[in-house]
């Protein structure tokens, strides 16, 4: 599944200072849909190069990291349970860096 990921607010520093990543995420065998929970695990394994604790805590993002799916706050779409679709744009912004 083709997804565009954007990292901002300092999170880009955790993935080689690249802000926008166009990625293909394979669906796990036997599963029909991709959720934010799956995507986060994928991002952590495949994109985060350093200090993963700045991005995640447990199986979700660290408190203080905002997530938007197609420019909509993921708190409105079910957070980890949000189902992703082809060509979705997911944005992660840290509120924890600097003032």
């Amino acid at each position: 599944m083709h997804i565009t990921l954007e990292f901002g607010g300092g999170l880009e520093l955790l993935c080689d200072s690249v802000k926008i990543h166009n990625v293909d995420v394979e669906l796990k065998k036997g599963l029909e849909k991709l959720t934010m929970k799956d995507l986060l695990a994928w991002v952590r394994t495949n994109l985060i190069k350093e200090r993963p604790e700045m991005f995640m805590k447990g199986d979700t993002v660290r408190p203080g990291v905002l997530v938007l799916v197609n420019d909509c706050d993921w708190e409105l779409s079910g957070q980890l349970e949000t189902t992703l679709q082809e060509k979705d744009v997911v944005v992660f912004i840290s509120t924890l860096h600097g003032g």
Partner: peptide, 9 residues
């Protein structure tokens, strides 16, 4: 795209 968001939200 807007409709898709609405559905999921």
């Amino acid at each position: 795209e807007g409709n898709t968001i609405a559905k999921r939200a």
